[in-house]
Simulated assay, not measured.
Amino acid sequence: MSSEFSLHRREALSLGAAAMAFAGAARAQTAPAAGETYVDQAPGYGPLVSDPNGLFDLPEGFSYHVVSQGGQTMDDGLLVPGQFDGMGCFALEGSQVALVRNHELKASSSTHGQWGPGGFNRERLHLLDPAKVYDTDRQGRPLPAGTTTVVYDLRTRQMVRQFMSLAGTSTNCAGGQTPWGSWLTCEECQDTPATVDVKREHGYVFEVPATATGLVDPVPLKA
């Protein structure tokens, strides 16, 4: 195993805990579906204690730490998009990890456009490098979905940086981690210029290396 992927046991446990916490944060954004039953009880740890901040109810003795929220200004000047979905956590150098997050924003939704990295009025879209944007609408505005990357230090429990790592895609939902340290993000749609306000076809998988430090080249993986 290469040194860049080696972890001490304590760091490995922390990495697993961080991944579960991030996954929980994504799940907490969505309300229960119709007919879904939620039981306010954590077996083995006692009843859940109401969170005064209204974010996470946890058993007594447990706590949480918010690392990143939608609407925050990232290091690249863009805003953290909404609609977090699939994500992958990767070990970097030392005690740092990278969390690559999908944002399931639809090209066909005007509301979703306002939740993108450009802001409510899309006033920050000029910060995106056009050469690194996969697609735009007919007015030339980058599509709102894609991925963001958060670099987090497990020892200091501080975020190091966060930035847009894939831009101009649509409805990034599921994904998976590769053995060589990258995130495969999947567009859960079949958008075409004939069906919605886009210029290119969609429904592809894109690869985002965990070591990326900014926007990657948006290359759709085709059979």
Rank of each mutant, 00 (worst) to 15 (best):
S2M: 04
F5P: 05
F5S: 13
L7T: 03
H8I: 03
H8K: 11
H8P: 06
R10F: 02
R10D: 04
R10E: 04
L13G: 07
S14Q: 14
G16Y: 07
G16W: 06
A21T: 05
A23F: 01
G24V: 03
Y38F: 07
D40C: 09
D40H: 07
A42R: 04
P43T: 03
G44Y: 03
G46L: 03
V49Q: 14
P52F: 10
G54Y: 03
F56Q: 04
D57A: 13
L58R: 00
L58M: 05
L58N: 00
L58I: 01
P59G: 01
P59W: 01
P59H: 02
S63C: 11
S63H: 12
Y64R: 03
H65P: 01
V66I: 14
G77T: 07
V80Y: 12
G82T: 10
Q83P: 07
F84A: 13
G86I: 03
M87V: 05
M87K: 13
F90P: 09
S95N: 14
Q96S: 14
V97K: 02
A98L: 07
A98Y: 01
H103Q: 10
L105T: 01
L105A: 02
A107N: 02
G113R: 12
Q114L: 10
G119K: 00
F120L: 14
R124N: 11
L127Y: 02
L128H: 04
D129A: 06
A131W: 00
K132P: 00
V133I: 06
V133P: 00
V133L: 02
T136Q: 00
D137R: 00
R138Y: 03
Q139N: 11
R141Q: 09
P142L: 08
P144N: 11
A145L: 02
G146L: 00
T148N: 13
T149A: 11
V150F: 11
V151S: 13
L154I: 04
R157A: 10
Q162R: 10
A167S: 14
S170F: 00
G176V: 10
G181R: 07
L184P: 09
Q190P: 09
Q190S: 15
T192R: 13
A194I: 03
A194C: 06
T195D: 09
V196M: 08
D197L: 00
K199R: 15
G203E: 06
G203D: 06
Y204E: 05
T211K: 13
T211L: 09
T211C: 11
L215Y: 08
V216G: 04
P218E: 02
V219F: 04
L221V: 08
K222F: 15
